[in-house]
Amino acid sequence: MDYKNDQYITPEMVSRICSGDIIAYEEFVRDQWTTAVRTCWLVLRNVYDAEEAAQNAFVNLYKFRGQLKDPDKFRIWFYQILLNAARQQWRCRPNTSSVPAIEVLDPTDKIDQTETRIAVREAMCSLGKLERIALVLCYFCDLTDREASIVAGWCLGTYKWRLAKARRQMAKRLQDRQALKDECCKGANESWMK
């Protein structure tokens, strides 16, 4: 599955945004709003904070539009601003624990899918903030490792280190869940055979 958006934004659009064209800016905001909120949400795990961070990021993007030195790096630049906004939001309420999200079951979900969903959610929440950022930049934002390290403001090796830790932890959770599921299936089959 290819999640990359090659037509993320055209050079012409970048040029218009950087020159202060409010129409182009609105188009960009509307196009990227959902992705921006979800990126922040994956990091912050709180939808209100995520929307606040995304809003701040779009505002900062417009205010600092004159500082983009290389239009080809608009995407990295935007993610830098977005991640900084998320971090700022985190700092404002670092010790705030949100009320656990209520699991709304999708009627089309199978039990197996629901279990996976819960396992992923638990795994994400169990990661440290830095590991979560690495994971989100790699898998959700689809940035290359070098791009992601620039966006996060880390050395490339540091990024790789954190990503490796996060992946290991995430994989372990998913594998444990799979093993448990296999065990249950085996148990059910044996009991049926008896």
Binding site: M1, Y3, R38, T39, T116, R117, V136, F140
Partner: peptide
């Protein structure tokens, strides 16, 4: 992992 993270994000 990639797929699950995208699915997770879609639930936001």
């Amino acid at each position: 992992i990639r797929q699950e993270i995208h699915k997770e994000a879609n639930r936001c």
